[in-house]
Amino acid sequence: MFPDLIVKPLSLKELSKTLLSLPSDRKYLAGGTDLVVRANADIENSRYWIDISGLEELRYIKETAKSVLIGSQVKASELEDSRIIKKHLPTLLSALPHFASPSLRNMATLGGNCANASPSADLACALVSEEAYIALYLKGKKRKMLLKDFFLGLRKTALRKDELIWGFEIPKISHKGAYMKLALRSSFAISKIGIALSVRINQNKVEYLSIALVSVAPKIITAPKTCDFLKNKILSPEILDKAASIIQKEVNPITDIRSDGDYRRSMAGVLLKKAFKEVLK
């Protein structure tokens, strides 16, 4: 169902006024690439939409000495063009070409990819692997949490009623990154499984490691056991084989229209090894 009304506040001040005047059956509209598709499919029932795409306050990519800061209204294609992202967030950068199509990347926002809490959200997965924090905003107050903890389950997040995703804060950690995705086609398809690997290797020894996966559980997951096993190890084919068998036990995939649970489990190990190969290139 399409909404009865869409309002378009052009500042946060206008947004708070909108929230006071509009009936409570409402939702934010960012890029619209999830929300409008849901409306088209008649699975969206909210009657009022608040178009936040005009909130310039939420459209920034900046850096401080310790972090990279990204506003929730930043579009995927704006990330691809950013010098800061290219320099500091290799895993997110590697996920971008795997995300939808060029025109959808001109529309879809980073905030929308997280708010949607789909277990196959590629950019959210890369951000979890980059150890991002998410900043949330409600009635003049901000709170912050690890993005990993923001996802509670299938399409469930820690967002409160009317709470807005303000942006993301990603610590600058020196590392390399790779995003690997298996789908029905090589581009423009939702994943059967995807893995985001952020790693720093020094003289073949794993100094830093963070892994996140999509489409292998009801929400985006990390792989703490695999990370614990690999940390401070000298990489060898045997060690990577062992790590692959550990990650296969850490995932919990289902069988659905896109893929088979056993296949997904087995591919978790294969993609882990491929991702290592990619960063070692």
């Binding site: 619209g32 409008v36 088209n40 178009d51 294609s77 025109s103 001109n106």
Partner: peptide, 21 residues
Amino acid sequence: MALVSGKAVNSCIMMAVQAHG
């Protein structure tokens, strides 16, 4: 597809209000 601010977008899943300005 149409160009909005010079960029290609899928106009079927963009609301007209999002083209404001």
